[in-house]
Design a protein around this nucleic acid. Structure first.
Lengths: 193, 193
DNA sequence: GCGGTTTATTAAACTAGTTTAATGAGATTG
DNA sequence: CAATCTCATTAAACTAGTTTAATAAACCGC
């Protein structure tokens, strides 16, 4: 769990004994490619850390898959609305490839936050970072065309296309697979000339 | 500042003397319609609370205005990337109507978080709430058509169309004013029949 | 209240996407 | 290794948006 430990310490100082206790609360989950961590209707009372692999957050509505986010190594994640509100999830969290996840129970996390100001601080800063990262997701919208959005994604998250099928990328960009394929074709032509 | 006080206490218990000290750190800012709170190039070392009015968060790129968010009464906000990274802003925060804002300096906030676990907790929970609200923004993308997105906005934030000109709504939805006008026309016809 | 500016609508030509369906190419499995 | 399944591409008809420009309506400052 060295990655997770380093990650936490990158936010702020946490005393060894406190940090060790905190880490002892995590359980390890190994997901095979295609396996779901959360499905609609489930309660979400864990906060996750993605140690390796890739998880996508999506819903199915009118038979259509809508990908909202891809989580990659070294990130904290959960289905936050369900986690916070204690309501059943409306989403899936599913592995696009074999993935290792560490999970902490909400009640354990909150008790720890109560008893340690340092951990509370870590909680605040990690939440802040996650929120800030979500801004770049909104930026997506601010690209003028879908072609621009696709190129920006290629540039910012080049690893994604290795581990994620193209039709999920299309969904993430708000396109059909056919639409994305057209864009790619267009881009190929430009490159060759 | 009763609204702000109540808002803070809605997250968790904060002792009177601590809360009074925290509130004393805020300065009040009155913005006239059209006035900017933040402009590109500026450093952002304050966190804001919108007491009344409406503020929009946008950038201008290639001469085009791109609205990322509208903030309305009772919300905490800032240009988070610039605030966190200490880098100059690339955005505007501007009032769509006369607005009252309370502002706290980053250094004051952080000192207070150091000295009070309760305030740190408030900081974490408010950040969490803000992050969670941003999910609904992402949901936007998951509507199938722009018409659906417009209708959903009408439904979820009916007040917005009172205080915000239509071309900003269009930008927020990722449309041109012409495009939004067409959608509205289409919807009118449906209603009449 | 007048004159100027800002905002919304309309039209017409165009473009970038969708939908449906067929084909092809790569993986996976029995 | 063959059969199946999944994923990406292509084509063709269609649709929902864009762009540009003109017009109309609403809003402000003096």
């Amino acid at each position: 769990m060295q990655n997770l430990k380093d990650k936490i310490l990158s936010y702020n100082k946490v005393d060894d004994n406190v940090l060790d206790y905190w880490l002892s609360l995590y359980e390890r989950i190994e997901l095979k490619k295609g396996e779901a961590l959360i499905s609609p209707g489930q309660m979400v009372n864990r906060f996750y850390y993605l140690d390796s692999g890739c998880i996508y957050y999506y819903k199915v509505q009118d038979g259509e898959t809508k990908v909202l986010e891809f989580y990659t190594e070294g990130i904290f994640f959960t289905d936050l609305p369900a986690y916070v509100q204690g309501s059943p999830s409306r989403y899936y969290l599913r592995a696009t490839e074999n993935s290792r996840v560490f999970a902490i129970k909400k009640s354990d996390a909150e008790n720890s936050f109560d008893s340690s100001h340092q951990l509370e601080r870590f909680g605040r800063l990690s939440m802040q970072e996650a929120f800030m990262k979500s801004y770049s997701r909104v930026e997506r919208i601010s690209s003028r065309t879908n072609e621009e959005r696709y190129l920006r994604l290629l540039e910012k998250r080049p690893g994604l296309l290795q581990s994620v099928p193209q039709y999920l990328i299309a969904s993430y960009l708000g396109l059909t697979p056919v639409g994305l394929s057209k864009i790619r074709k267009r881009l190929m032509k430009v490159k060759q000339v």
